[in-house]
């Protein structure tokens, strides 16, 4: 991804031409070499949903550990927009973790914390809190709960972008990713067989590449600047995590009709690398939740 050269805004979320894009999952890249044929190339960078990561922790037979979460009582400590956005992400992942582990009472507490944060961030009810009411109504319905959590993120994400609060949208996603990493790096030490969790931590190499492309734009922002050195160090460690991948083949099962991208990816991560990643993630998280 060395192709990010010059960022500019085009399209439906742009407020002016040729200005810097501020969106975590939506970076537009000026492919200057393609200007001659008037082709515009836009690149969106996404992060996996925290639901996917927390579900993996359950599948790895981890026990629910409340001590790992950011206490909801901390919510009153967060005043600045940056701090609120980062902890929106933290609490969002904590909510996913609680719900995945069927901790309904805890889920309600984190729901309240998120509502508090969305109010302080002045995200309108129809985009944030109103969706949260649906969670309360269907808290025991596993099938719909994840959909509602996703809708909440989506509503906040699109509202913030629409209102040129792209950095806030960025910080929410960053906070959510950091909390997922915090849970995974701590839970790995509690498991007899932690290979699945270690594998998932190693796989964050790709997500961190996306994150670094995004935060690079905002390194002067106070909230990002606070943790930029640690993120850079984390990136340096992840660059040393080995990955090899065989060529993908698409196979469709004639009976089930399921199409599979069939290939193998091997990540090589050492204990020293894991320890360093755990340490840096811890340092970043402390700065966010304190």
């Amino acid at each position: 991804m060395s192709l990010v050269s010059l960022l500019f805004i085009v399209g439906c979320k742009s407020k002016s031409d040729k200005t810097k894009s501020d969106i975590i999952d939506n970076i537009e890249v000026d492919m200057s070499e393609r200007k001659e044929d008037k082709t515009v190339k836009k690149i969106f960078l996404n992060l996996p949903s925290p639901i996917e990561l927390t579900k993996m922790l359950l599948a790895a037979n981890a026990e629910f550990d409340k001590e790992l979460l950011n206490p909801v009582a901390n919510v009153d400590k967060y005043i600045s927009s940056g701090s609120l956005a980062l902890n929106f992400g933290i609490y969002g992942t904590d909510l996913c973790y609680c719900r995945v582990f069927e901790e309904l009472q805890e889920s309600i507490s984190y729901l309240a914390a998120i509502r508090n944060v969305t109010d302080k961030l002045q995200i309108p009810e129809e985009e944030g809190s109103n969706t949260l009411n649906r969670i309360e109504e269907s808290l025991e319905d596993r099938d719909s709960i994840f959909q509602i959590i996703s809708d909440t993120y989506a509503g906040a994400n699109s509202y913030l972008k629409e209102n040129e609060r792209d950095i806030t949208a960025t910080l929410i996603l960053l906070g959510g990713w950091v909390e997922g990493m915090h849970l995974a790096t701590n839970i790995k030490d509690q498991l007899k067989d932690n290979s699945a969790v270690v594998q998932r931590i190693a796989e964050q190499k790709y997500s961190l590449e996306n994150i670094m492309l995004i935060v690079e734009q905002y390194k002067d922002d106070a909230s990002i600047a606070l943790m930029y050195n640690e993120l850079e160090n984390l990136s340096k460690i992840y660059k040393t995590v080995g990955v090899s991948q065989s060529k993908a083949v698409v196979v469709t099962d004639e009976e089930t009709g399921v199409t599979t991208i069939d290939n193998k990816t091997q990540f090589d991560i050492s204990k020293d690398q894991l320890d360093e990643i755990t340490k840096l993630v811890g340092q970043i998280r402390v700065k966010i939740v304190s």
Binding site: V10, I43, M56, N210
Partner: peptide
Amino acid sequence: IYNGQLNSAVLNEGDVAELMLTFY
């Protein structure tokens, strides 16, 4: 389940957009 991230833009003919994402 929607991953919650909006990737939308107004594109003109000839334009190209890309989405990068880790698939687990």
